[in-house]
């Protein structure tokens, strides 16, 4: 890693390598990271090493990453859903591959900040990740100074965090909004509710086409008819699953069930 990307992994950063590289290993049909390391040693200059470097460097996360999806959620998607669900007053959201939690907590802040009426609704907000270490971090909701510097508006820092030593912890009411569950996207999924909104961003890129099709197909079956799916900027359902159509929402796109 140091030779190819100038990134140095100190002791104690094992969880980082695990969470970033597990999808790469699975995409190649390897069952353990050990097998991935063996494969890397046998071809240190091949395309695999590029994928490993890419996974270690570009799969990083930050609060309000890419901004536009969260603007679209606030200005378009949630107002539509709140109107459509006004009678039943239930909403189910799923944030897949939630990594260290910045994405689900960003969504939680958007919900709390702009849609206080949802406090009276039955909102189920599930965030999943394959890594137990990442899920532990998510539940704890503690972030370093560098992490809270990244993309988090200062007024949200003041409103939704408290300082603990040199780190910052998300307030408990916000932590309590999110259910963190272990889930391997490429494996068996635990029971999930029918969803109104699914965030599954910047993770499909790590899977081969067959696995992508399987995952996107399963998301399609989970989505409610007027629900929507958010993908990463470099991801699409085109040539993966024809059951989706792309629709403009604010300054980005969401994916809805094709009629």
């Amino acid at each position: 890693m140091r030779e190819r990307s100038a990134i140095v992994l100190d002791a104690g950063k094992e969880y980082l390598a695990e969470s970033r590289l597990a999808p790469v290993a699975r995409g190649l049909g390897l069952s353990t990271l050990g097998e991935l390391v063996s494969r890397l040693r046998s071809e240190p200059r091949g395309s695999l090493s590029s994928r490993v470097v890419e996974a270690m460097t570009t799969n990083e996360t930050s609060f309000f990453r890419d901004l536009n999806p969260f603007d679209a959620l606030r200005t378009t998607i949630l107002p539509q859903l709140i109107q459509a669900r006004a009678k039943e007053r239930t909403l189910n959201l799923w944030c897949a591959a939630s990594s260290s939690g910045q994405e689900p907590y960003t969504i939680a802040m958007v919900l709390r900040e702009h849609f206080p009426q949802l406090l009276e609704w039955r909102v189920r907000f599930i965030a999943t990740d394959i890594s137990t270490e990442m899920l532990r971090r998510c539940r704890e909701g503690i972030y370093s100074q560098l992490e809270i510097n990244r993309g988090l508006p200062a007024r949200y820092l003041v409103k939704y965090f408290e300082k603990r030593g040199t780190e910052w912890q998300i307030h408990k009411p916000l932590r309590d909004m999110v259910e963190f569950v272990e889930l391997n996207l490429a494996g068996h999924w635990p029971a999930l509710p029918q969803c109104d909104v699914v965030f599954i961003r910047n993770v499909l890129i790590y899977f081969n086409l067959e696995t992508k099709r399987d995952i996107v197909g399963r998301v399609r079956k989970l989505l409610r008819p007027d629900g929507c799916m958010f993908l990463g900027g470099a991801e699409t359902t085109l040539n993966v699953d024809e059951g989706f159509r792309r629709e403009a929402a604010d300054k980005t796109f969401v994916y809805r069930l094709a009629r």
Binding site: S62, F64, L67, Q145, L146, I148, N149, R150, G151, P153, A154, R155, L157, V158
Partner: peptide, 25 residues
């Protein structure tokens, strides 16, 4: 700082990405 009228706040040390993301905000 926010009460005095600052719009954003970055803590040193920072990376280039931190500045770019805050400008986006």
């Amino acid at each position: 700082a926010l009460s005095a009228g600052a719009d954003e706040y970055v803590m040193k040390p920072f990376t280039k990405d931190v500045i770019l993301e805050k400008l986006g905000v």
